[in-house]
Design a protein around this nucleic acid. Sequence first.
DNA 1: TTGTTTTATTGAACAACGTTCATTATGTTT
DNA 2: AAACATAATGAACGTTGTTCAATAAAACAA
Lengths: 205, 205
Amino acid sequence: MGTAERKAKEKEELKARILGAAKKLFAEKGIEQTTIRSIAKEIEYSVGTVYVYYKDKTEILHDLHQQGFAQLGGEFRALFHVSDPMERLKALGRIYMKFALENTQMYDLMFNMKAPMEFIKANEDHHWKEGNATFDALRKTVQECLDHGYFKGHQLEPLSFAIWGSVHGMCSLYIRDRVKAATGQEPDQLMNSAYEDLMFMFSRK
Amino acid sequence: MGTAERKAKEKEELKARILGAAKKLFAEKGIEQTTIRSIAKEIEYSVGTVYVYYKDKTEILHDLHQQGFAQLGGEFRALFHVSDPMERLKALGRIYMKFALENTQMYDLMFNMKAPMEFIKANEDHHWKEGNATFDALRKTVQECLDHGYFKGHQLEPLSFAIWGSVHGMCSLYIRDRVKAATGQEPDQLMNSAYEDLMFMFSRK
DNA sequence: TTGTTTTATTGAACAACGTTCATTATGTTT
DNA sequence: AAACATAATGAACGTTGTTCAATAAAACAA
């Protein structure tokens, strides 16, 4: 029957509106200021309604973190037309860093905050498919680099993780306000120079 | 007069007890469970008393983060008897990582959480002396490495930051539960292998 | 010792948070 | 039109960090 379908669609729509409001507030004010009440106010519904569509806040944050991975994943996929693996690796890192610096709150949610992982632990089968897919893109590229004679003597898995960790670390220190505070340098400039330094070392045959 | 001195000492003592209780709860239960009320309960004082000695929670967390840096700084200083700079660099990284994995909550506070930096911004002159001192130990060692012909063509400042970021990134991903979730590997083992991989690349002349 | 003043401690009360759930409103079906 | 099902509500609960008038304790002065 048609009513059931329409209702299902309406429910989907409202859920999407909730998520949209959360995303907006999240990007604008950060997670601290993104309360359930503020989300409800944004879409002009009551607090209770939010809880009809989302069982708790971690589920909202998990959905949000998925959107972030959808975006980053898309940008990653677009880079697979770069055939030279080392060039692609550098490009992947650049895009990753750009994403982090331009979407600090979202990056923080994806790679630093505990909420999404807690949701996965509690509701899904401990399997972080978004993280896996993204890491796969890196791993695949690193494997091709190995095949082309780069990273001689290194093993795929730890090497890939080390590369991920390296870029993530700089982004993380940036987002969590440690860069300027510790180095005294202009952060954005330092980030770029440091990234070049890293990639230079990585790309030595 | 003697009473004033004694009183000052007693105040110091109680403040230290508050911090000690905070440290204990913090290490045991994590920051989420370390509430002002739980600290007050631990030392058998009322909530109000805590606020006589600490103006707010960020100040407690800042003092705690200082203790962490005192410990890490001490371990760093002990490594300066290693004369070979590259050996020392490797040792510094190892100790840093060991500290992170063995004191996850404290490391998180020192390098990830916002509270200590917010306190510094609001109360001190924007100068993160703990971070500066620690970064200096790294920078000094990196400079000696440069003097010994390592890292040819790199600049001290961005290079040092890149190295810090690399190790921090792996620790951070570990602490924030992304390692196993994304790689599917046994985390501790992966951390060690990845660290070796990094240091191998760093130490190439 | 007694009265006065200063200092230390208290815990009820506040605002804001995530969350719940009986109640109300709306829409659908018979 | 009545009966039923679904959706939306917002007051209320338990916790959080934080404040502050009231109380207790200690120090000082006579």
